[in-house]
Design a binder for these strands. Structure first.
Length: 695
DNA sequence: TGCCGCCTCTTTTTT
DNA sequence: AGAGGCGGCA
């Protein structure tokens, strides 16, 4: 029987002369209590703008100062941006001593673990990582493999299938429970869906790839089924800190439990009012039940808001008040005064864009840096009109969320070729590369894949390329197609050299791919060209092909967009972001655009009051990003193909609020360009100058 | 078999 | 707007 010997905690005295930071002076009393909390499990319930990040950063510094080796601290977050921001801030506090703190997203951290112990779960060391689009392709491969050429009518599409699989995995449910709960219309196909799920899993394993959910699920399996690995991994985690804990799903909550299982030190920070990831299996229940899961966990609160003015908080509090599910949350601030938030009705989205651009320029003129302002929206497409307007006015901006560059077809093409070099068993990558060969369609590609698969399992991955070269003639319809496939193989062969620097691999690959690229994207390849150079640049920043591919799979942070032409050099750009991607950030001025019913709340999220509440929290998150100025705006008309122009309604969460909370503005177009010194039509109603760029 | 053009549909949010 | 499905043609 193993025995547990309990060591008394070694409490550093508050006056410990070894501490270089003055924690008591830099933090308020609640923040101080959290940052300097003793060992064990601590839940910090922190409202919006209460200095959560600051507190975590000081916590890290405190641990390091009190003798915890930085590399034994693990700081987990949900986005790479949050991770890097926090690690950078911590590093800045104790000049470099915090640099070796481990951390990143759950997915990235799990990937690292799996890479190190892949043999324990039956994966090759060089397994690949699938994004959502790749995963959809694997579903197709799995389907073909099951011999299911024809699916029943009214059968879920692959995107829906993946969502079902994901819900089951992330929430620890059986497929039939997910179907009954969320997809009753497909319940009759349970058997077939189940078979597809099995084939999907089998295909991933056979071809050595994992999807995002696998990163979490397999890491958990690795730790649970290999006590020695768990002891080794958790033994090196003296403290685990988790930000945005309200957004963990079951797998992530379980992983945290594993990570702290040796030392028993965990700090979870979160705000149940800001839970916005239910759609991917997050469950506020986990933050609410921390005390149940960890007997004796202490609970601390941060309630003092330092970010926003009172009028902004009043509005945010009001929005939350009307949730069906009540929150015991009222933020208070010392920042008295400040302007009322505005609800701006714009005639159409072009005028809305001009309004935002104009206020942004005015504020920049008045001394607010562009990157202290942000434009937030519900979905990626909401900012299209604004992006055009910002380009016209040469205002530099970066956009977070929405479509990613790594999802662009031509970037995925390049990545697919690299993945084949990395892991010749990777059938999805092969498939993509083969389909780009002129004359190769689904059928030919399928036959070639069978050859490759046989070679990869039989003679090992290295044999695959060799085998393919010999077999091409037998499988391919014509000699010219065989020659084309041969050229692909010739292009890939030198890339298998692992010592070749990644940028050289990409450069060489582009020698093969460029002609293909110009043929496949004949109508618009010049516009796409810059992205290929960006891949080369990204490759130059990575040590190995493996590292490059990981970075590409998990959304590279340092994938820089070039600044708009004519932009001031080095001026930090205006931030455009989905609300989801803006979580945890703060800005002097926030514009919430397209605050429309059907957009926020999304028309797809109105089936239940739970879903509507999540949309409401999303609005709450958006509003509480603002420090001093807040503008919510919406266009009065929208266009939709088919329907044409139609009238809109402002967000149900914002319409009907008293003018003492949210001041209605309307936009009026000035008839003539203003002479200098002219008064505005009304003091607080900015007029729009005539559009300079045309609509 | 593969390619092309025409059709419709559907449109969150992220790792 | 863009993707995916389908039918007809080379």
């Amino acid at each position: 029987m193993a025995r547990r010997f309990v060591l008394q905690p070694r409490e550093p005295s508050p006056a410990d002369p070894g501490l270089t930071l003055d924690y008591a002076a830099d933090l308020d009393s609640q923040q101080h209590a959290a940052a300097t909390a003793g060992d064990g499990v601590t839940l910090v319930v922190a409202g919006a703008g209460t200095g959560k990040t600051r507190t975590l950063v000081y916590r890290v510094a405190y641990l390091v100062e009190t003798g915890v080796p930085p590399e034994q601290i693990v700081l987990l977050t949900f986005t790479r941006r949050a991770a890097s921001e926090m690690l950078t801030r911590a590093a800045g506090l104790l000049d470099g001593r915090c640099e070796r703190v481990r951390g990143g997203t759950f997915h990235a951290y799990c990937l690292e673990l799996l890479r190190r112990h892949s043999e324990r779960i039956g994966y090759p060391q060089r397994f690949g990582v699938l994004d959502a689009a790749d995963a959809a392709d694997v579903v197709d491969l799995a389907r073909t493999r099951l011999g299911l050429d024809r699916l029943p009518k009214r059968f879920p599409k692959k995107r829906t299938l993946l969502a079902m699989f994901s819900a089951a995995t992330n929430r620890g449910l059986e497929l039939d429970e997910v179907l009954a709960e969320e997809y009753p219309q497909y319940a009759e196909h349970l058997d077939l869906i189940e078979r597809l799920r099995g084939a999907y899993a089998e295909t991933k394993r056979r071809t050595g790839v994992m999807d995002f959910d696998d990163l979490l699920a397999l890491a958990l399996e690795l730790l649970r089924e290999n006590p020695d690995v768990r002891r080794q991994v958790a033994g090196r985690i003296r403290h685990v800190l988790v930000d945005e804990y309200q957004d963990v799903n079951l797998l992530q909550a379980d992983l945290v439990e594993q990570f702290q299982s040796v030392h028993g030190n965990a700090m979870m920070v979160g705000d149940d009012a800001q839970s916005i990831y239910r759609f991917r299996g997050a469950d506020v229940g986990h933050i609410l039940e921390v005390q149940k899961r960890y007997n004796g966990a202490r609970v601390l609160k941060l309630e003092h808001n330092y970010r926003s003015t009172q009028p902004i908080l009043d509005l945010a509090n009001r929005v939350l008040d009307e949730a069906v599910e009540k929150y015991d949350k009222r933020l208070f601030t010392d920042r008295e005064g400040g302007d009322l938030p505005a609800l701006v009705a714009a005639p159409d989205d072009d005028m809305e864009a001009r309004f935002v651009a104009q206020v942004v320029l005015d504020k920049r003129e008045a001394g607010t840096d562009l990157n202290r302002m942000a434009v937030l929206f519900r979905s990626g497409w909401c900012s299209y009109a604004l992006e055009a307007e910002l380009n016209r006015r040469k205002i530099p901006f970066v956009k977070f969320g929405g479509l990613k560059l790594t999802e662009a077809a031509h970037v995925k093409d390049v990545v697919a070729h690299l993945r084949v070099a990395e892991n010749p068993a990777d059938a999805v990558a092969w498939n993509r590369a083969l389909r780009l060969v002129e004359g190769v369609g689904p059928t030919t590609a399928g036959r070639l894949l069978d050859w490759i698969g046989a070679a990869a399992t039989g003679g090992g991955p290295a044999a695959a390329v060799q085998m393919l070269r010999q077999s091409v003639d037998e499988v391919v319809p014509s000699a010219s197609v065989a020659a084309s496939v041969g050229r692909l193989v010739e292009a890939l062969t030198p890339l298998r050299d692992d010592d070749m620097p990644p940028e050289e691999q990409v450069e060489r690959l582009l020698g093969y791919y460029r002609p293909v690229f110009e043929r496949v994207y004949a109508d618009d390849f010049p516009k796409r060209e810059a992205d290929l150079d960006a891949v080369v640049a990204l490759a130059a920043r990575h040590r190995s092909r493996t590292a490059l591919l990981e970075s590409l799979a998990l959304d590279p942070l340092d994938w820089t967009q070039e600044p708009a032409e004519g932009a001031r050099k080095d001026e930090p750009p205006l931030v455009l972001s989905t609300i989801h991607s803006a979580k945890g950030l703060e800005f002097d001025t926030v514009f919430l655009i397209h605050a429309l019913d059907g957009v926020l709340p999304s028309a797809y999220a109105l089936a239940s009051s739970d879903e509507e509440d999540e949309e409401r929290r999303l609005l709450y998150v958006a509003l509480t990003r603002a420090e001093t100025e807040l503008y919510a705006s919406y266009p009065l008309v929208q266009y939709r193909r088919g329907t044409g122009q139609y009238l809109t309604e402002p967000s149900r969460f914002l319409s009907g609020l008293p003018e003492s909370l949210l001041e209605p503005w309307s936009l009026v177009e000035e008839a003539t360009p203003p002479a200098s010194g002219d008064a505005l039509p009304e003091a607080d109603r900015p007029a729009l100058p005539r559009s300079s760029g045309g609509a």
